[in-house]
Structures are given as structure tokens and as C-alpha cells.
């Protein structure tokens, strides 16, 4: 449900970017979304499509999502592993002393605009 909140923040950043770059219409926005960011991409797309109709600069904007895989680092054996598959416990050595390296991001990569 927080997807709509994130869309509102996205729109604010896009407005600021448009003003800085003197853009009038945004045709595409590419977002990089981490696998373990807690963002449901289907819901996010729905929320974006609902919102853009009310926001003149985004009316024809296409949303492209790129996934950033979740990767966790093990402090004990100094190896990395897939976060989604193994969670908090290292599959190499069984340690719980592990830290997420990447995968919780939500970054605006680029926009295509007039």
C-alpha cells in the first residue's frame, strides 16, 4: 500500500528534474528497483498509472522498471550469496552475521523527455 506514497515522491522528484532541465513533457521514466526493496512492482505500476492521469507532465509517461538483484555479504566467510533464496543465513557457512550489499534500492535511473 505504500506504493502510492512512493509514486508521490517520484512525481515530486520528476517535477524538480523537469524544472531544472526545462522539460515540458516526460515520455518515459526508468526506475531501478531492488528485489528486496519491499516494493510490489505490479502495485507500483498500477499506482503510477492512476496518478499520471492527474499529473499533466506525466500523462503519456511510460514506466520502465529494472530489477536490482538482492546480494548479501557474509562477514564470517567473506562470500556473497543471493538474498531472496537464502535470506539472513549464509548458505556457505551457516552464519547469521550477514549484511545486505544491494537490493533495497529504488532509484530513478533516467527519463526521456521533451
Amino acid at each position: 500500500m505504500h506504493e502510492m506514497g512512493i509514486v508521490l515522491h517520484l512525481a515530486k522528484t520528476l517535477d524538480e528534474t523537469a524544472e531544472e532541465n526545462k522539460l515540458t513533457k516526460i515520455g518515459r521514466v526508468t526506475l531501478q528497483v531492488g528485489e528486496v526493496s519491499g516494493i510490489m512492482t505490479d502495485l507500483f505500476t498500477d499506482a503510477f498509472d492512476y496518478f499520471k492521469k492527474k499529473h499533466p507532465m506525466l500523462t503519456e509517461c511510460k514506466l520502465e522498471l529494472e530489477t536490482i538483484p538482492g546480494v548479501t555479504w557474509c562477514d564470517n566467510c567473506h562470500k556473497t550469496y543471493e538474498t531472496v533464496k537464502y535470506g539472513k543465513t549464509c548458505p556457505h557457512c551457516g552464519s547469521g552475521e550477514t549484511w545486505l550489499l544491494q537490493g533495497n534500492e529504488c532509484i530513478i535511473k533516467e527519463i526521456e523527455a521533451e
Binding site: I6, H9, L10, K12, T13, T17, N21, L23, T24, G27, L31, E105, C106, I107, I108, K109, E110, I111, E112, A113, E114
Partner: peptide, 18 residues
């Protein structure tokens, strides 16, 4: 019509909130 431009943003969506 203005030409289409690509603008690299590279900013976290919640950067303004942070």
C-alpha cells in the same frame, strides 16, 4: 516540437523524504 532528450537522474526516489 522539441527534440526528445534523455536525462540521467540517478536519484533515490525517497531522497527528498530522507
Amino acid at each position: 516540437m522539441d527534440p526528445i532528450r534523455i536525462v540521467e537522474v540517478k536519484e533515490a526516489v525517497l531522497a527528498d523524504n530522507d
